[in-house]
Design a protein around this nucleic acid. Structure first.
Length: 587
DNA sequence: TGCCTCTGTCATCGG
DNA sequence: TGCCGATGACAGAGG
């Protein structure tokens, strides 16, 4: 229905309208507007489109001229590598309180221009005409003087963004923000900016100034753009930028922050993403625009490149390697981490190479790496970024990782005030090798890691085995690996329990020894007390006998009589002879 | 070189 | 009956 060609519809204007009506009614339920069939409407639209294109071309030409004019005012300082304004006799010395370096650096953003371009004065004049300021009375003559002054330099143009910018020229952008964005979007200017773009990977541990000789250049340019002091730090830059330009439409940042990777290098990926993504997201949500999509097309500010799996892999992986905990937790010969066997098994199912694996990859990066890549490609369909990062890292990167690892080890060793225990040394040495089972698995190209084989639950293990076609040897090896691994852990647990048991028994033995000593002392004390009581009782007995008298007043002999006490407490004097007689009678 | 310690492995037992 | 953990015994590596 939509395929009807227009020339056939022109027998007359009235017929056209009728046809349009008919077709529109037919397609109205499809959501087609009537203007779809209105040829005159389309003609008008195309004319408007052409007119817009012409305006756009003119505007771009104008901006190109402005760009050339700006570039003409800069020259490359061969000593510092920075772009500085060409010496201009008409320029005035910096005034007190101004920041000449800032201005210079702001200009540094642009590369050396053509020699036949406009002078800087002409350029500034053109800029002034192009972007008229709100307060023309404060506008200094368009010369370098204005550029040197902090308050009247080109950054003032940026300051003017906070103020309403009347557009006297219909061809000019609606706002100064947009104007600057378009200015910065000029391919030539971007090329200049790309010249100072830092490498994809920037060591975050090293000050950015040391890594990129042009750091001050474009950082100052950025800070100048943001209206901040050039000496402000990077974080100050972002914060200050937001403070200084609360009204500035942040979606423009996708163009403004062409050199933002520098900021990233100072912030770290997360920090930058937090800063930029959040703002951009907010603004994209507010404006319905997609600044990230724009930035994705802009190589210098490709924030998506910072995401894993892209060019940022190297730095990301490097950061990952610097993570102290690279314990695989499996490691038959490597350090067994029984307490945390799932350490290398991340929550998302990813795995990391153990130190031994990394070492082995270093020794034979080609074969081993390919083996492991094959393994992971087979076994981990849902690998997370870390696995992919580790697996897809280049051999050079492995060397880098190894270097970092050894460095971290040396740092770890140096961190101790005492030399590490020999036990630790042995453990580290054992960590540096592949276990026999790992070597066997590698030789038979087992598509699982030893860690997986050993630590997976039975159900998961069986499921994993059923998903892969393994031959007899592989199956046998996998079973042996699992059995040995389980037994190894069991032996470790057993020895641990045995040691704990021994320690417990030793503790019990000490306790029992102490108890024995205490009881011995108590026994000695009781014996002594018993002896004393016996002595006292004997003395009392004799004393009682000494005061007893018979009817004739004679004392009783203790040998012939004895004192006996009944159950009711009465004491009787019993003659011993009698007692012996009674005893003899009982016999 | 012998001794000791640690660790992996095997064989066996019991739940 | 097979699986799995526990454990004694042995061997190898390393200090």
């Amino acid at each position: 229905m939509m395929e009807i060609e227009m020339p056939k519809m022109q027998p007359s204007q009235q017929q056209d309208m009728d046809l349009i009506d008919i077709l529109w009614r037919q397609d109205i339920d499809l959501g087609a507007g009537r203007e779809v069939f209105d040829f005159t409407y389309r003609q008008k639209e195309s004319e408007l489109q052409k007119q817009k294109e012409q305006e756009e071309e003119k505007r771009q030409q104008l901006q190109l001229e402005q760009e050339k004019a700006l570039l003409a005012q800069l020259q490359l300082d061969e000593e510092t590598g920075e772009f500085v304004p060409r010496p201009n006799p008409s320029s005035l010395p910096p005034q007190p309180g101004t920041t000449p370096s800032t201005e210079v650096n702001q200009n540094d953003v642009f590369s050396e221009g053509n020699g036949d371009a406009m002078s800087f004065d002409e350029c500034m004049q053109l800029l002034a005409e192009t972007f008229p300021l709100v307060e023309p009375t404060e506008t200094t003559p368009p010369c370098l003087e204005s550029s040197v002054s902090t308050t009247t330099d080109s950054s003032q143009l940026m300051m003017a963004t906070e103020q309403p910018a009347p557009t006297q020229n219909a061809m000019l952008p609606a706002s100064l923000d947009q104007a600057w964005m378009e200015l910065l979007s000029i391919p030539e200017l971007q090329q200049c900016l790309n010249m100072i773009e830092p490498p994809a990977y920037v060591n975050t541990n090293v000050p950015v100034e040391l890594q990129d000789p042009n750091y001050n250049m474009y950082m100052a340019g950025l800070t100048d753009l943001a209206g901040n002091n050039a000496e402000s730090c990077q974080s100050e830059y972002v914060n200050g930028f937001e403070r200084s330009f609360p009204n500035m439409a942040l979606p423009n940042l996708d163009q403004m922050s062409l050199t933002a990777p520098d900021v990233n290098s100072g912030f770290g990926t997360e920090g930058l993403c937090d800063v930029l993504y959040s703002d951009l997201d907010v603004n994209s949500a507010e404006n319905g625009a997609s600044p990230l999509a724009d930035t994705a097309n802009d190589p210098p500010m490709d924030l998506h490149a910072l995401s894993p799996g892209d060019t940022f892999n190297t730095s990301k992986a490097e950061a990952m390697v610097e993570f102290p905990d690279s314990d695989s937790g499996l490691s038959l010969d490597s350090s067994p981490n029984v307490s945390s066997p799932d350490k290398s098994l991340h929550d998302d199912g990813s795995f990391e190479f153990s130190d031994a694996e990394m070492d082995d990859m270093d020794n034979d990066p080609g074969s081993v790496e390919s083996d492991f890549m094959e393994m992971f490609s087979l076994s981990l369909a849902s690998d997370c970024q870390q696995t992919s990062l580790s697996v897809q890292s280049s051999p050079a990167h492995h060397q880098d990782m190894q270097g970092k690892h050894s460095k971290s080890e040396s740092m770890e060793g140096s961190g101790h005030t005492k030399p590490p225990f020999t036990k630790d040394k042995a453990k580290r040495r054992s960590e540096a090798r592949l276990s026999r089972d790992e070597q066997r698995a590698k030789a038979l190209q087992i598509p699982f890691t030893v860690d997986m084989i050993v630590n997976l639950p039975v159900d998961d293990f069986n499921e994993m085995m059923s998903k892969h076609q393994l031959n007899e040897a592989q199956l046998a090896l996998v079973r042996d690996i699992r059995r040995r691994g389980k037994n190894k852990v069991a032996a470790q647990n057993c020895r641990k329990r045995k040691m704990e048991s021994i320690l417990g028994l030793e503790y019990d033995l000490d306790s029992l020894k102490e108890e024995k000593e205490r009881l011995q002392k108590e026994k000695t004390e009781n014996s002594r007390n018993l002896r004393q009581m016996k002595q006292q009782l004997n003395a009392l007995y004799l004393e009682v006998f000494s005061v007893l008298r018979d009817e004739q007043g004679r004392p009783y002999s203790p040998g012939e009589y004895s004192l006996q006490q009944t159950s009711d407490g009465s004491v009787f004097l019993v003659p011993r002879v009698k007692k012996t007689l009674v005893k003899s009678d009982n016999r």
